[in-house]
Lab assay of single mutants.
Amino acid sequence: MATGGRRGAAAAPLLVAVAALLLGAAGHLYPGEVCPGMDIRNNLTRLHELENCSVIEGHLQILLMFKTRPEDFRDLSFPKLIMITDYLLLFRVYGLESLKDLFPNLTVIRGSRLFFNYALVIFEMVHLKELGLYNLMNITRGSVRIEKNNELCYLATIDWSRILDSVEDNYIVLNKDDNEECGDICPGTAKGKTNCPATVINGQFVERCWTHSHCQKVCPTICKSHGCTAEGLCCHSECLGNCSQPDDPTKCVACRNFYLDGRCVETCPPPYYHFQDWRCVNFSFCQDLHHKCKNSRRQGCHQYVIHNNKCIPECPSGYTMNSSNLLCTPCLGPCPKVCHLLEGEKTIDSVTSAQELRGCTVINGSLIINIRGGNNLAAELEANLGLIEEISGYLKIRRSYALVSLSFFRKLRLIRGETLEIGNYSFYALDNQNLRQLWDWSKHNLTITQGKLFFHYNPKLCLSEIHKMEEVSGTKGRQERNDIALKTNGDQASCENELLKFSYIRTSFDKI
């Protein structure tokens, strides 16, 4: 039985969820670079991206490699990797027998973001014989899940209580170790020597080791999670996991709180800001991140802002960003909400898709409305799209047979046209069989910064309504002859009103 693990408890099935942008060198404390989270699957090609990484700022997932063999891993080693800020997950990587050479110096898994409450997941690794993470000293947050690894031993010899604050939620089941077939031998045991430290858990006094050649490092209890030197002297209180010299914040392997210019500090002093819960960055760093993602459509890219001495992905609820200094300031009234469309555009074809934009005031991208039916549609669209004030790209209304009016965009005031449909149009209306009105132009103002209007096959939309939009939106004169079809717009509506004058002759039985 794995020490510190839980057996036999019912657990939810383990679901495996399925960018080499360097964020800056980590400095003297770390020998390499800070790398983003990685999802490495199918083959070993991307694994080489770990070569210079000291910190993975995010998670590391290595999974679904069915053609790899043990010899493929023999020359692979990433000794610079010290810390993973989120979680480490391995799933069905064939041929991998140990992690001792792959990650010989991995010391800390912070667990800032977890995989279903777990910071370390080893699942269905069919050839893994031992973990071998002999320098792993601290899992700051989260638990361990090690399950269905039929060859995995050296679990009962690990004292997880020396690595985690609590072992109650560890789930370590259905491994070879369960069948008591392992016969784990710690260093020196074969020669009758006791080389590794022994600890007591559940009444068992057991030597602690990761492999037959690597003991588990056990520091004096007084050192807590700070770690200790090879001689057993406690590291500085700002260290986490390990250090090369005692009581020196510049000799830590990793930091308990924050890293700044080669030393570990309790908090980031001005003019620095907390970033990702582990390091200090200056304003320029946060500003660069903001600008890199301002026009990016890459998933996970955030326009970072500053709030409460932190550089964070977005302002919290009730705050909006001051564009001059990136500071989050309290909103006066309802907060603006910028919604970034991942692929640059979004099609609204149902109430469900409209709900995804609920509360958005600025759309960074283009909207395509293609709704053919739905219950209580006008009210639903207004509830979900009615706060949109600005669209950076274009607005396209296409084959939306259920629409009679666009009044559900009740606050839309600006279409920038930074991206144009077919390279020309910022407003595009095609084949809307029941569209009769755009907006009530006596109450609604709309500016279209650039781009043209396109109207074709809107049989109940009168040309007068379209011409009014040209005047109000500032697009009059931009359109070419064929942009607004004269014969297919309003051709099934009563669009022309003329005053009919009647004269009559009164007659009676005795007068003409």
Rank of each mutant, 00 (worst) to 15 (best):
V126L: 15
Y87F: 02
R92T: 05
C234K: 02
N202R: 04
L240E: 03
C209S: 03
H214S: 14
L174N: 13
G300V: 12
R263Q: 00
Y272P: 02
C223H: 03
P36A: 09
C53T: 00
D169A: 07
C268Q: 01
Q287F: 15
D184N: 09
P336D: 07
L164R: 05
N308V: 10
C223F: 03
Q204L: 08
P330F: 09
D277Y: 13
N135A: 11
M38H: 10
G32W: 05
P36E: 14
T229G: 04
E168S: 15
E33H: 09
T189H: 15
C311T: 00
I201T: 05
N117L: 07
L44T: 12
I122K: 00
E51K: 01
F103A: 00
L99D: 00
G227R: 04
G192M: 14
L90H: 00
K129E: 14
S324Q: 05
I84G: 00
P334S: 08
C239W: 00
L29C: 15
L64V: 09
F205A: 06
H274S: 15
L133Y: 02
T85Q: 12
C209H: 03
G37C: 02
L106W: 02
N105T: 03
G37Y: 09
H214I: 08
C293A: 04
P31V: 07
N202Q: 14
L128K: 01
I139R: 01
T250W: 03
N52V: 15
R297P: 09
K224P: 07
C315P: 00
F115P: 02
S98P: 00
W210Y: 14
L29S: 08
K193S: 05
N43L: 05
C235S: 00
S296W: 01
G318A: 03
G300R: 11
Y273E: 01
G58S: 00
C255R: 00
D277I: 04
W278T: 13
N170G: 06
N150A: 04
P187T: 11
C252K: 01
R74Q: 04
V126T: 12
F115T: 04
P330M: 03
L327V: 03
T211H: 09
F78K: 01
E124F: 05
D177F: 11
N138A: 12
H59L: 01
V121G: 01
K129L: 04
H226P: 03
T211G: 01
I56Y: 00
L99R: 00
C293P: 02
H307D: 15
L155Y: 12
P31I: 07
N117K: 04
A119C: 03
S77N: 14
L155P: 05
G183T: 06
W210I: 14
R141W: 10
V108N: 15
N149L: 00
G188I: 14
C268P: 00
V200L: 04
K294W: 15
N282T: 07
N242R: 09
H226Q: 08
S225E: 03
L29N: 08
P313Y: 03
C280D: 00
A156E: 03
S213V: 10
E181L: 01
L60I: 04
W160C: 02
D247L: 07
R263P: 00
Q245H: 12
P270Q: 04
E168T: 13
D177C: 08
G142L: 02
I40M: 10
F258H: 04
P220S: 04
S225Q: 10
P336T: 04
N257W: 03
S166L: 08
C301Q: 04
W160L: 05
F66R: 02
V108F: 02
H291P: 02
C234F: 03
H236G: 07
F91P: 00
D169C: 04
F103D: 00
K294V: 03
N117Y: 04
A198T: 10
N42I: 04
R141H: 12
S296V: 03
I185W: 15
E180N: 05
A230K: 15
M83S: 03
T140K: 14
N242K: 07
Y87R: 00
I139Q: 01
T250H: 04
K191L: 06
F283R: 13
F258R: 03
L64M: 11
Q276E: 15
T157P: 09
L76C: 15
Q287I: 09
D277K: 11
L152P: 00
S237G: 07
L60M: 06
W278L: 05
N105F: 03
K67I: 11
E97V: 11
S323G: 14
N282V: 05
N138G: 09
D169Y: 06
F285A: 05
V218H: 12
I56S: 02
L63C: 14
S244T: 04
V305N: 03
N149I: 01
P271Q: 03
G203H: 11
P220D: 14
T199Y: 06
N42L: 06
I158Y: 07
V93F: 10
R74D: 06
D75G: 03
H127V: 05
N242A: 11
H48Y: 05
C264D: 00
P269C: 01
N117A: 08
D72F: 07
D184Y: 06
E33K: 08
P220V: 04
K310V: 05
C255Q: 01
D75V: 12
S284G: 13
K67E: 15
H59Q: 12
K251V: 10
G183P: 09
K67W: 14
V206L: 14
C293F: 06
G188T: 05
C209K: 13
F103P: 00
T140W: 04
F66W: 14
T107L: 05
Y118F: 06
P313V: 03
Y118A: 05
S77L: 08
N195K: 11
F285I: 02
